[in-house]
């Protein structure tokens, strides 16, 4: 997703000189290239995320559109109060781009994992939360965030995530996208973990089991209408996320089911109130923590 991000942000910066890339020593060679071409639009704040987040509110107050980019965990956790007081409380037009959603910093361990970020951030008023599933969807998320006049958090993978869309498609904030059709239940999924799920679906299809897969790329504001409809039409629904099952997508689905008195069963798949353990490639760490296609297959199969 990183390449898609760099390409999209670079084009936006060339189009609109008010778009400012705010780094906290978190850039790559590409950022350095952009900085050489557009020096007044790249600010490296050094290793000081909190200062960067609050300063970005100051930049936004003057009509700038800061894209605040750093490791997802440092942004969501360390800078939470700054996101709350300086950005969300005052509805500043700042885009927070968290690089390394879920377990994608797979070799660095739990300090670098973002597996509780949705839980804490979705409680913040005024904040739109986008969680794109693929590089193409990330591009669309960045462009959509630019169009929104207000704070947006984008949860972005960084492990050569696969593309899931073959053709161009319509991406509308807060409009879920049906990826597969089926008649035995629905799986709501967010982020690039959808790749594991699509492998699982293929395994299930071979056994004659079909499920509807709904890509929830906007975690806030939620597409409640679609979730209500899907839940009403499914005896069982699953949620899948690279996140603690407390406070994430699954909890949001549970809210919708409970507050609309829908008669269905929800199985939440994610980290079971634990920090992820182990090190390895992205695939390996997902397997170690029960978030690979086989583990997902087993949970779905056991509950159908």
């Amino acid at each position: 997703m990183q390449k898609a991000y760099i390409k999209t942000i670079y084009n936006l910066m060339k189009q609109d000189k008010n778009v400012i890339l705010c780094l906290s020593d978190s850039g790559t060679d590409y950022d350095e290239m952009i900085a050489r071409e557009l020096p007044s639009q790249v600010i490296n704040f050094g290793i000081s995320e909190n200062n960067k987040v609050a300063a970005s509110a100051g930049l936004a107050s003057q009509g700038k559109i800061p894209f605040v980019y750093t490791t997802n965990a440092f942004l969501a956790y360390r800078s939470y109060e700054f996101i709350r007081d300086d950005i969300c409380l005052q509805n500043r037009n700042v885009k927070l781009v968290g690089m390394g959603s879920g377990l994608s910093w797979s070799t660095l361990g739990p300090t670098h994992h973002a597996t509780e970020d949705i839980a804490v951030l979705k409680a913040l008023p005024n904040l739109t939360i986008l969680s794109p599933a693929s590089p193409f969807e990330l591009e669309k998320s960045i462009l959509a965030a630019y169009q929104i006049d207000g704070p947006v958090y984008i949860r972005m993978g960084m492990s050569n995530e696969k593309e899931i869309y073959e053709d161009d498609y319509s991406f509308i904030v807060s409009k879920n996208i049906k990826i597969t059709d089926g008649d035995m239940g629905t799986v709501f999924v967010t982020g690039s973990i959808i790749n594991e799920l699509l492998d699982t679906i293929e395994m299930l299809n071979k056994e004659g089991i079909s499920l509807r897969v709904i890509n929830v790329h906007t975690l806030k504001p939620l597409d409640e209408g679609n979730i209500i409809e899907e839940c009403k039409n499914s005896k069982i629904v699953f949620s899948l996320e690279e996140h603690n099952i407390i406070g994430g997508l699954g909890s949001s689905i549970a809210d919708v089911i409970a507050t609309n008195s829908i008669d269905t069963k929800l199985i939440k798949i994610g980290l079971n109130d634990t920090f992820a353990t182990g090190y390895g490639t992205y695939s390996e760490i997902k397997r170690l923590n029960g978030l690979d296609k086989d583990s997902i297959y087993k949970i779905i199969k056991d509950n159908l």
Binding site: A54, A55, G58, S61, G63, F82, D86
Partner: peptide, 13 residues
């Protein structure tokens, strides 16, 4: 500990 950071953003802009 928020105001000065905010102020630097305004000054930079």
């Amino acid at each position: 500990g928020h105001g000065l950071s905010y102020a630097t953003g305004v000054a930079k802009a």
